[in-house]
Design a protein around this nucleic acid. Structure first.
Length: 924
RNA sequence: GGGCGAUUAGCUCAGGGGUAGAGCGCCACGUUGACAUCGUGGAGGUCGGUGGUUCGAAACCACCAUCGCCCACCA
């Protein structure tokens, strides 16, 4: 083995072999475990969020495989309608073409080409992450099977009147030319103005002043509204206003919706361009006048000199004109929520169009119940509240998109505007008896990407066919996802799963946090703070990193700033950390919070952890070779050290099990780290040396120690494997034979059986005694600046019978660990030489000074300990002196406290005595 | 306007009714036969504030402050 851990030498070969050997296919026993991957965009690339999420899923998947479950991690990709179409359109634009130049069919073909050429990228990256998805079952949302599922669902919903088509106000993206669902619209606070317009009352000198943030929509005003109880304007209700510019008469109406305290208390009403106005329009039967074109320019029904003007240009022109007309009373700064499309960033326009909707309330009801009654559990639980809030206020879902890339809506129209829904045109004709002579035209629109995503947990398993996978794996075990798509995806899967697959899609929803940069900023290209998981695995030099971060920016002027920040943060680029270190870092970061700051310091620490494991393994392999020629692997190691490390291993394994069951990968990882570094390496390996290098130790004892070394490491590798698949496989290949374990891959092994050794308590006691002893010596060394290499002569004063026995049993170990030259028992009555002292219960461990130690320094050191003990004693005595504590606290607590007080008193007495004797010597 | 989360060591974060924890960073010493990607020792916190519950609160409750996120129709 190499002296240092070199991840690049060990990762890919193992992955290739696992895949070749079909190790990711379900092959377990009775219990089944299944996760469906949140499908990444087919043409996308792996980002930190994926890498994090995939680590969680892979860890759970590999864990369940080791537990012997029939385990499936179902993989697939998403066609990602808008996102993918935008990318290809941008490519076309770069060639000076638009999608209309190609036409629909050619454009779609072009998108398929793009998928073919770039669609493998994310899969390659998933492999680098070690993701053990079942590649043989990979699906794509626009596969034939999945498309058929989409059609079936659409048709059934339509036939049950749960899908309808209607002309309504929708969120219109005037750049992408498509409708958006409410969820795809993000409202941000922006600085704008509140303009006050004076509208003249017809047949009167009076006027009414309205306030608006959208002046250009006044072209479509069909009323002015005020609050019914607003005394200022009562007399105006029922009168009419003559709309400036367009010269139209519109009524003044009263409606509760109006807030008399906002603006002037009078509102202009534009039912065709505002959701509230739309509703008010419905209530008052107001006409709806559409002002815009699909581009959100002024349409041809508007006054001539406005036609064709972009909405914002129209606004300027209109304001200028109003100014001259004296209609603009005043302008005040005003902050408002501006709705923008989440993809285009364009200001979304409420716009009247024909769209398809899912009537959602009937689907929502059972989906709410499923979480209420515990059929589905959110982890952490509080996310269910977010889910409920949204579900209780859910609006009908606009599912049609005016795009080309996606599942085309299976609806056909005749020339009379009748709509027929079916799988194919032929299907529709035969179902409805429509002659071939009657022209039918398919709906141009495609479905919202999330429509097919909503079917994902069952469409990927073969629904609507009754496949073995459906019966084996549905409902799936757990959905692992971020809170940002609870509404987009989780809720909709629950609704559709219950409706179509007859059961919840998953038993649990594990919601993880979002990965942010080290300053808590969201990672984004334009901020230039993106980290590519693959760069963390392979490393990247500074120049490559800089050019990667500054290439292809939407706002190229940001490049210098990004470059500067990158050079400052990564003066030497990013070193290679390897997949296992990255995965362990993610696991350790998987806490319950919302935001996760990705700190490079941690991945470095876990790379070091890999190195630690690597080198411990080198040690084990180099010392346990004799086991290979041993015929019996039923060696029993009954040394206390062996029992102790086995007990710690069991404890750790239990911890990991328990924490994984509650998705606390951070705590599971911590338990492994702690055991590996601070118990197995720091103590057990060192203890083992004392036996292995002891010429007097029996060969049985040596073999037993070797066996425990190897067996514990082999078990540790299994427990660690779900987190760090590569390094554990690499080491396991070498350690398994030594540990007497057969098999060709660690993937073949089973999770260690957690067995409790009856003599654990005694071993733990003995170890604690030994550790106190060794640590006492080390502390003296450390604080008194005695070189670690200096072998010490030690006196044990006032040792009890028990101390003597324990020392006798462990002399070799202690002498080795504390690096002692000699140990002499001394009775309290004997003369002690001046010494530095460590207290061990009633016993004093004395290191004679003999030129090694400065008396004053030792007095200081002991005084510090004394004062700490005194503080502690005072606190404990304070408690015990409180009658209500003694009366009311549990007996065990009081007993502990009493024992503690006794120990402190003993310590204090010993310390005082020791300090005094040093002072006497000093004075003499 | 509602809701949710966070506030613990210099930094990143765990924990949880019974004497404050880890990693990184820091200081000192160290090439001891796995590992300097290391070892040993050490310094460092009145757990955001104020009340309350309790024998006991950093932890539970209430309120407040600061930061962040989500939802919502004030033009």
């Amino acid at each position: 083995m190499d002296k240092t851990y070199q991840p690049q030498n060990i990762e890919q070969k193992h992955y290739e072999r696992w895949e070749r050997e079909g190790r990711f296919k379900p092959a377990g026993g009775e219990a089944s475990f299944c996760i469906v991957i949140p499908p990444p965009n087919v043409t996308g690339t792996l980002h930190m969020g994926h890498a994090f999420q995939d680590t969680i899923m892979d860890t759970l998947t590999r864990y369940h495989r080791l537990r012997g479950d029939n385990t499936l991690w179902q993989h697939g990709t998403d066609h990602a309608g808008i996102a993918t179409q935008m990318v290809v359109e941008r490519q076309l634009n770069a060639e000076g073409l638009s999608k209309h130049d190609l036409g629909r069919d050619a454009f779609i073909e072009r998108v398929w080409d793009w998928k073919a050429s770039s669609g493998g990228r994310i899969n390659g990256q998933l492999r680098r992450m070690g993701a053990s998805v079942d590649w043989s079952r990979e699906r794509f949302t626009m596969d034939d099977g999945l498309s058929a599922a989409v059609q079936d669902v659409f048709i059934q919903l339509f036939e049950e009147d749960l899908i309808y088509r209607g002309k309504r106000l929708v969120n219109w993206d005037p750049v992408l030319h498509t409708a958006l669902s409410d969820l795809e619209v993000l409202s941000e606070d922006e600085q704008g103005s509140l303009w006050h317009f004076r509208y003249p009352i017809e047949g009167s000198d009076e006027s009414v002043t309205v306030a608006t943030t959208r002046p250009e929509t006044m072209l479509g005003d069909t009323a002015v509204a005020l609050h019914p109880d607003d005394e200022r304007y009562q007399h105006l209700v029922g009168q009419h206003v003559r709309l400036p510019l367009v010269d139209r008469l519109i009524p003044v109406i009263a409606d509760d919706y109006v807030d008399p305290d906002f603006g002037t208390g009078c509102v202009k009403i534009t039912p065709a361009h505002d959701f509230n106005d739309y509703e008010m329009g419905q209530r008052h039967n107001l006409p709806m006048i559409n002002v815009f074109t699909d581009d959100a320019a002024i349409n041809d029904d508007m006054p001539e000199d406005y036609r064709g003007l972009d909405r914002f240009d129209a606004r300027k022109k209109l304001l200028a004109e109003f100014e001259t007309l004296g209609v603009l009373e005043r302008t005040e700064p005003h902050s408002l929520k501006v709705p923008r499309g989440d993809r285009s960033g364009a200001v979304v326009e409420p716009y009247l169009t024909d769209q398809w909707y899912v009537k959602i309330a009937p689907l929502a009801e059972p989906a709410i119940a499923a979480v209420e009654n515990g059929d589905i559990k959110f982890v952490p639980e509080n996310w269910s509240k977010t889910y409920f809030d949204w579900m209780h206020n859910i609006q009908d879902w606009c599912i049609s998109r005016q795009l080309w890339w996606g599942h085309r809506i299976p609806a056909w129209y005749d020339d009379n505007g009748n709509v027929y829904v079916g799988k194919t045109e032929q299907d529709v004709r035969s179902k409805h008896g429509i002659a071939d002579a009657v022209a039918l035209r398919q709906d141009d629109d495609v479905l919202d990407t999330w429509f097919s995503s909503a079917l994902w947990p069952f469409s990927t398993l073969g629904w609507p066919e009754k496949t073995p996978q459906m019966s084996d794996f549905y409902p799936t075990s757990v959905l692992v996802t971020g809170f940002d798509i609870i509404f987009f995806w989780v809720a909709r899967m629950i609704m559709f799963g219950l409706k179509f697959a007859g059961d919840v899609p998953f038993r649990e929803v594990y919601i993880h946090g979002l990965i942010r940069d080290q300053d808590g900023q969201k990672m984004s290209k334009s901020k230039g703070n993106v980290l590519d998981p693959i760069d963390l695995i392979d490393g990247i030099d500074l120049e490559a990193l800089v050019s990667k971060r500054t290439a292809g920016l939407m706002q190229p002027h940001l490049a210098p700033r990004i470059e500067k920040a990158t050079r400052r943060q990564f003066p030497d680029g990013i070193p290679e950390f390897g997949t296992d270190a990255l995965r362990f870092t993610f696991a350790s970061l998987a806490t319950t919070g919302r935001d996760i700051r990705f700190d490079l310091g941690r991945i470095e620490g876990y790379r070091n952890f890999c190195n630690k494991l690597w080198n411990a393994s080198r040690f084990v392999l180099s010392t346990t070779e004799p086991l290979l020629s041993t015929t019996s692997h039923t060696i029993v190691d009954d040394s206390f050290a062996g029992r102790w490390i086995r007990s710690r291993f069991t404890h750790m394994t239990e911890q990991v099990q328990r924490q994984l069951a509650r998705y606390r990968l951070d705590l599971a990882a911590q338990a492994i780290y702690e055991f590996t570094w601070h118990e197995y390496c720091d103590w057990y390996l060192e203890l083992s040396k004392a036996t292995l290098y002891d010429d007097d130790a029996s060969s049985d004892a040596k073999l037993a120690t070797m066996h425990t070394l190897a067996a514990t490491l082999e078990g540790l590798l299994r427990v660690l494997h779900p987190f760090m698949p590569y390094i554990t496989e690499e080491i396991w290949q070498r350690v398994a034979p030594v540990a007497g374990v057969s098999g060709t891959s660690i993937c073949d092994t089973r999770w260690p059986v957690v067995a409790t050794d009856s003599s654990v308590a005694e071993a733990d006691h003995n170890m604690a005694w030994l550790q106190t002893f060794v640590l006492g010596i080390r502390q003296i060394r450390g604080e008194m600046d005695i070189a670690p290499g200096k072998r010490l002569d030690v006196l044990l004063v006032d040792a009890t019978k028990d101390d003597r026995a324990r020392y006798a049993d462990n002399a070799r170990l202690i002498e080795k660990l504390a690096n002692l030259n000699s140990v002499t028992f001394v009775d309290g009555s004997d003369e002690e030489p001046p010494s530095a002292t460590a207290m061990h219960g009633e016993m004093k461990i004395c290191v004679p000074m003999a030129g090694l130690i400065d008396i004053d320094k030792e007095i200081d050191r002991l005084s510090k300990q004394l004062s700490k003990s005194e503080t502690d004693l005072a606190r404990t005595e304070g408690k015990l002196g409180n009658p209500s504590f003694v009366e009311r606290a549990p007996e065990a607590v009081v007993a502990t406290e009493k024992q503690r007080a006794e120990e402190h008193r003993q310590q204090i007495a010993l310390l005082r005595e020791q300090i005094q004797s040093l002072r006497d010597i000093d004075a003499a």
